[in-house]
Structures are given as structure tokens and as C-alpha cells.
Amino acid sequence: MSEPIAVRATPELHFRYAAGRYGSLFLRGLGEGRILASRCARCPRTLVPPRVACTHCFGKMEEIVEVPPRGTLLAFTLVAFPFLDPFTGVQRPIPYCYGMVQFEGTDNTFQYFLSEKDPSKLRVGQRVEAVFNEVRKGELGDLLHFRALE
């Protein structure tokens, strides 16, 4: 048999994702340099990013509160392999570090970039703080990264 044929297809699909009510609040909060969380008084749970459904009772999180822009690093990784970013369609710049940060006064973790690029200088349990961009637009990128406090 002669060589099998493969047909290349690169369908271009565009999406516009609704941030929703709680997400819009959170992004506007970032624009003001603030970290907002949702609170469920029953459980009690305080969660970042804020969202409608509590992770414990699955009921409505009624209250929006501001939490300090500091927390604890509970896990981290240095991403070193190349792949296409689904947002841009081009390779995401590597290497980069991100981690799971538990903000003070919250019950879950928030996944975001770390300024440190050497994982040997990071440790689980380390204190970190959020660094905001000087120019903010009410989008996730307003939060630049987390920086080690120790």
C-alpha cells in the first residue's frame, strides 16, 4: 500500500466566557488591588475566587469579603516543557513557576504564578504575598504574581 494520507484541520473556534456575577466582582476587585472572597456563614467557609456555591454545603455563598493579600504556599511547580496556550494559540513562555496559595483567613487555595523561578528556593509552608501590577484593568493579569516573604 502507498503511504496513508492524513488531512490537517485547524478549526478556529472563538469563545467568550462569562465571568458571571461573582467572577465580575473578583476581577473588578483585582482592578482595585484587592483580593475578594465569598463567605458561607453556615459552614463556615471563605473561598477565593468568590463563587456562588459553597464547597461544603453547596448552598449559596451570600457574603463577599476582602482578604489580606498574603498567604501560605501549599504546593508549587516549575513548568519547563513547551505547549500551545489554548488562549493564544502560540507556545506559552517557559519556564514559569506557579503554586497553590492559601490566603490568610480562607479555607482553600488559589492557583497563580510565583516570582521565583528556582523551585529549590521554594518550600511548602512558605509565606508569600500578592504583587499587583501598577496599571490595572480589572482582569486576572492585574495580579502579577506571588512573592516570597521570607
Binding site: 462569562a18 458571571g20 456575577r21 461573582y22 456562588v52 456555591a53 453547596f58
Partner: peptide, 25 residues
């Protein structure tokens, strides 16, 4: 429905169902 992401849309209809039936999770 720009006011609701998928989580919020599902929350809305499930809570309405619980309201109507008196059920809970």
C-alpha cells in the same frame, strides 16, 4: 446570559428545583 457563568446557571436551576420539591443536596 452574561450574568451567569456555567456554575451560576446550574446553581440557579438546581436551587429552583430544590425550592419546588423541598429537597436538598
Amino acid at each position: 446570559r452574561d450574568d451567569a457563568n456555567y456554575m451560576e446557571l446550574a446553581f440557579e436551576v438546581i436551587q429552583d428545583l430544590f425550592r419546588k420539591t423541598g429537597w436538598s443536596h
